[in-house]
Computed example of a mutant assay.
Amino acid sequence: MPELPDVEGFRRVLDRAAGHRIERVDVLDSGVLRGVTADALRDALTGQTFATPKRHGKWLVAPVRSGRRHRQAEPSVVFHFGMTGALAWVDGNEERHRHDRVVIITTSRELRYRDLRKLHGLRLAPDDDHVADLLGELGPDAAGLGEAELGKRLEVTRRRLKPALMDQTVVAGLGNLLADEILWRARIHPERGTQDLTDADRGRLHRNLRTVLKRSSRAGRVPGWDTWLTGHRDDRDGSCPRCGTTLRRARVGGRSTVWCPNCQRD
């Protein structure tokens, strides 16, 4: 599933499309449209231009502008990538992928939204107030979260740590892979209670959250590097890349969870 680093990568893709006049919108599969018809999407975008995109957690906002800059009363396309969504900025002569669902044709290239499972997709917010309403229940973006605020938001939830980290109303942007990686680096068991964290725990958690997000966002994905826990999640009888202990697996908060029983003692 795309997590914050993946969506940051898609933001960079979308940024390359910003400033190019939209000539046509081909809706190849309206199953990815949420709350907007194909005709309404075409009417809102054709002849307009995307302004600089913005990301919040796993959501990506593409403001539309008719003049030199986006105005508050102008619409925005809002992307949520679900399990399998992605954006590609390609030459118009490139053969279309079988999972391309919406193609936005500009004066130079094409922005293609592709999605295998179609669990989420595209929304059209008529103005900035509607964007704020759509994102209003999300917690602060994980990439800009300070240590004190992280500790406060976790403490008031009073539940197991991993599900709290993945709750988008607590912290926006963290998914299954990121949560496991951050907790492994911070040497904290995923089932620790949020109210039981010490000041030292919260400090390590925040430092490693920032490190993991910085490095993975630079890569545009959650990497499966050999020195990362993510590089060993799918190994049969995988071992901890830090101490060599055989990794443990269980479901925590309904999600498949991997941790090191030596580094992350309960």
Score class of each variant (00 low, 15 high):
G85S: 04
G92C: 14
R159P: 11
P163D: 08
H99P: 11
S256M: 00
L111Q: 02
R265P: 09
A88P: 15
I188K: 04
R96P: 03
H189L: 01
R98M: 08
W59C: 09
H206A: 03
R34P: 10
R65Q: 15
L119P: 15
R65K: 13
H97T: 05
I105V: 10
A179W: 08
D127E: 08
R16Y: 15
D29H: 13
R202E: 04
M83W: 15
S66M: 07
G139A: 10
S66H: 03
H70D: 12
E74G: 10
R65F: 13
Q72G: 07
L161T: 00
L178E: 03
R34F: 13
D129R: 10
E181H: 09
L60A: 07
V156Y: 08
K214I: 01
L229G: 01
R96G: 02
W225Y: 08
R265C: 13
P241N: 10
L122I: 11
S239E: 14
K118L: 14
G231V: 07
R236N: 14
P261N: 06
D100S: 13
R236W: 12
D167W: 01
V170K: 00
P261C: 05
A73I: 05
T194N: 13
K54Q: 11
H120V: 00
K162E: 10
C240H: 03
A172R: 06
R65D: 11
G146M: 01
Q168D: 13
W184L: 07
D26C: 02
V61I: 02
A17Y: 14
F10L: 01
S108T: 08
P140C: 00
H232P: 09
T169S: 14
D129E: 11
S217V: 00
T106A: 06
Q264C: 03
H99V: 15
E95K: 05
D129H: 11
R251F: 15
R117T: 11
D133S: 09
S256Y: 04
S216W: 01
R187N: 04
S76Q: 01
H70I: 12
V258R: 00
G67F: 09
